[in-house]
Design a protein around this nucleic acid. Structure first.
Lengths: 182, 182
DNA sequence: AAGATATGTCAACATGACTGACATAAATTT
DNA sequence: AAATTTATGTCAGTCATGTTGACATATCTT
């Protein structure tokens, strides 16, 4: 028999004088912590499975997604959003360029910039993956009323760091940015 | 202020006759897709930063978390939950055992099993990380009423695949499992 | 006694991060 | 005009964490 003692999280701080950081015992949100873990795992799992057929990984998906959604994104912006190094982005981006999922255009004002755009081929890939994820989201929201959906949106927004927002986050949260880029 | 209008990303759906796979244009939940991405990124970022001080990574955190939360978890259960191979788990688990964050006990009924338990040292680590994440969650839920919080919980649960649940998911969702293990 | 199961381990490899160094072209400053 | 800074690209090496495949050991089941 599988005996999982659900010995609740109320413990946690009774370790001999260990440096109990901030929270008092019993105040952890184990429920949300674990739901987020599993929900995100299955959420990205949809796309992961499909990506194998293209020989791509999660990294490719993230790049394609943001390039498609924010046409003309600069390489530097993409680095901000994804929070990776240019070397790391370089490999993935090169593949997507070589295989015709993304094209670069030289910036008008600043000709050093390489503005990124999804090709029709790239758009099709993003749409396919977003379709899978949208299906899951739609299913999950099916029995939730509009107030509930609003609460979900508020919650997710409030989970995001708002200090030093990148270009995409500025777009998502509106122009209330304190850091004028460019 | 919950209006999700992407001031600058509103383009993106005007792909000319490209092979639009399944969904009709304009029916994607870009809002939720992106909010989940950023929310989860910052959510795990809290722990990531702290883990560096211990010389550990995300993998260690996941193992510690579930061992602490479900004391006596078997190695096989952990593999189910994390969905990784035993070789991959092996390296991380060995470190946590060697450094005294986890101990193994031989199963009572089945002496082949190695039941896993967090030591006080391990508990302190999990509590520290869960404290950070709980702080973020609590902040995010602060201005949301009980009905909204219920909707958030419902939504996250509905995002999770319920077919073939592992031991931990059975615990989270109650005993309504259709697949008696062992 | 034979076979299945739970766990551990060795070896090789892939992906996607990282750091550091350096190159080029174009914009900006002096 | 020359010097500097910026945006991007690239080479080389490393690390963390995932993978497959093969095999060993102890223990339970048949």
């Amino acid at each position: 028999m599988t005996d999982i003692n659900f010995s609740k999280g109320s413990v946690a701080t009774d370790s001999q004088g260990a440096a109990s950081p901030a929270p008092r015992a019993g105040e952890f949100r184990w429920d949300i912590i674990e739901l987020l873990f599993f929900a995100y795992r299955d959420f990205v799992g949809d796309a992961d499975h499909e990506l194998e057929a293209f020989g791509f990984g999660r990294a490719h998906h993230r790049v394609m997604h943001f390039v498609y959604r924010y046409p003309g994104l600069k390489v530097a912006d993409l680095l901000d959003v994804l929070r990776i190094t240019k070397q790391s982005l370089g490999r993935v981006l090169k593949q997507l360029l070589d295989e015709g999922y993304i094209i670069q255009k030289t910036g008008n004002n600043d000709r050093r910039q390489r503005l990124l755009y999804a090709t029709p081929k790239g758009e099709a890939l993003v749409a396919k993956l977003a379709g899978l994820q949208t299906d899951r989201i739609t299913r999950a929201l099916r029995d939730i009323n509009p107030e509930g959906v609003a609460a979900i949106s508020e919650f997710l927004r409030a989970m995001i760091d708002r200090d030093d927002p990148d270009k995409v986050l500025e777009a998502i949260f509106g122009i209330g940015s304190k850091k004028p880029r460019e």
